[in-house]
Design a protein around this nucleic acid. Structure first.
Lengths: 338, 338
DNA sequence: ATTGTTCCGGTAAGCGGTTGCCAGAGAAAC
DNA sequence: GTTTCTCTGGCAACCGCTTACCGGAACAAT
């Protein structure tokens, strides 16, 4: 019930509060006998250090916020996993927040985290241009962009999404597809825009290939289903023969819609997803997907952040870019007819 | 760079710090002109309230911790979603922490959250008996058990896992299966133990049905795969004809292993999972699964917590139990031969 | 005995806010 | 013009902890 303070510990141990604090923070400078008395008192009272007060005094917290677009997307779970593992080694705590791709929720979370004076923020922004991010950094909360390249004002870790889109499209073109649809999400999301650009580039380079847009306002399986139904409803002559989806959730939904509408994958419709989440391989038709080094993304983001916090003056912002690679599975296997 | 304090705002607005604080917390009591001056100063300096200091004084934080077994499991993402939605309406922030079913990580997170003096903790415990939980409550941090029934020392929201296991097993038995394997996780996890008990009950009630244990130390797709391989390797006469998996991740992995080993689902092996995550319906063979009201679980947990915080004295701990229901899909469809 | 060292632990000033209380300034009432 | 009342905003204590600084005790050296 009562939450004990250092003062009560001091009274019980018959020392001053300063001594208790010393026992907690620099035990070596206090005599063993005193130290033992203090520890006993702590145990007896069930004292728990008030991190809030400590932090107020010390000025730096050991918590970093990780604000992701969608916790329900396993991609982010893996990124979080990577971040947490490394953070752990530097006894830093990661708290996961979810913007759900909603700019206002993103703002609220950023406000919260800044007011909390976290050590830093790792974010997959809904809109990377958002001035809020620059403000944060300017006011002293380091920000690292995750899965989205920064323009120099902050650190970032990302995967070359343009390249990812390009190799996916090139793969489909090489397989003989001449009408491809891009199933994207809101173009304000950098990843989506870049993947689209990569696809567009490959299509333009190939010549004679048509690119149809089937973007949805969300990056969820439900959105993918809706897109799939729309595409399936097209007359056969106009219908694309392949779809590149901006992430695996969309692709999985799209795939379900194909099955529901009686189209065969890959014969009637080839599909390539993005992220290569674990479920991609387990889908009704195992999904070809562009793989990103998810955990590495998280680890590296923490690494950059810790570096910035450790040496704010000599720190230079860095933009780390990883290469994606394509995992080909049955959903884009060679078409049997054609 | 510089993070501004209320003091600087006061100086710039030519008022005292108390007034600035009043503007922030009870704007109606300060004269409009003064108020405007203060707001201008806040804007000009880019002042951000230090929640840490505020909290130290006020003693109550508006953050609740949600500590789950596995962030990568979409089930928890949905629970989190539900919790966050309701928390939002009471401008309370939810931070998600991941124990990864590791007791020591769970402990560390609990320590952190308690030191942080969060308003309360929602937890899916690795071990519900853990004395740590009772201590927390005793020291003033309310705890609500999620997806795990409490014994009266705290509030809890759960789904009747015994019943869930039972209806799943009854379904398989009714479909003619006489040798069923239970693919579980560590039995220390309450949900796993309860689901197993439900299955065992149904099996005992039916008579003439054999229950084989294929439990794994983890509740992941990889563990499910391993279990599946083990089961597939059994000689056909001994091999169970149906599997009930303690969650969908296991079931999905198990299903993949069946495909890899050349066993057909549901003909050679029927499968029922648990949780009915979105991916269950999208699997290679759409998965039968026991559905839980995931978001409702999260919402209700927050509800109970807020109630306890609002009226600590008159609060009575409650154990809310929801009913699961079975969604039958192809993975446990009637066997064509037999 | 005196002085010098060394080692412990107490004292107190904050960290950045919040809030109850109080004084001073106007306005209203007489 | 004085008294009373109402607002407004300042003052200062305090939340729990950290830490620089200082003084006292114990002991060794002179």
């Amino acid at each position: 019930m009562a939450t004990r303070s250092i003062k009560e510990v001091a009274r019980l141990a018959r020392v001053s509060v300063g001594t208790v604090s010393n026992v907690l923070n620099r035990p070596e400078i206090v005599a063993p006998a005193t130290r033992a008395r203090v520890f006993d008192a702590i145990r007896e009272l069930g004292f728990v250090r008030n991190e809030v007060a400590r932090h107020l005094r010390v000025g730096r917290s050991r918590t970093v916020g990780l604000l992701v677009l969608d916790v329900a997307n396993p991609f982010f779970a893996d990124v979080a996993q990577g971040a947490e593992t490394l953070a752990d080694e530097h006894d830093t705590m990661v708290v996961l927040c979810n913007s759900g791709a909603d700019p206002s929720r993103e703002r609220r979370h950023l406000d919260q985290l800044e007011q909390q004076r976290v050590m830093g923020i790792l974010i997959t922004p809904v809109d990377a241009q958002q001035p809020r991010l620059a403000e944060l950094a300017a006011r002293g909360t380091p920000v690292v962009l995750v899965d989205s390249a920064a323009t120099g004002l902050q650190c970032s870790v990302a995967v070359d999404d343009r390249l990812g889109g390009q190799i996916a499209a090139a793969h489909l073109i090489e397989r003989g597809h001449r009408r491809i649809t891009f199933v994207g999400g809101p173009p304000s999301i950098k990843q989506v825009a870049d993947r689209h650009a990569g696809v567009a580039g490959a299509v333009a380079a190939a010549g004679g290939v048509e690119l149809v847009d089937s973007s949805m306002p969300m990056l969820s399986a439900a959105a993918g289903r809706a897109a799939g139904e729309r595409v399936a409803a097209m007359p056969e002559g106009e219908r694309p023969t392949a779809a590149f989806c901006a992430n695996d959730l969309l692709a999985l939904g799209f795939l379900q819609a194909m099955a529901a509408c009686g189209l065969r994958v890959p014969d009637d419709m080839a599909i390539v997803g993005y992220d290569d989440i674990d479920f991609a391989a387990a889908a009704a038709v195992p999904l070809s997907s562009v793989r990103q080094p998810r955990e590495l993304l998280g680890r590296t983001a923490i690494e950059l952040l810790l570096e910035e916090v450790a040496h704010p003056e000599r720190h230079r912002h860095r933009q780390v870019i990883f290469q994606p690679d394509l995992v080909v599975r049955e959903s884009s296997a060679l078409r049997r007819r054609s």
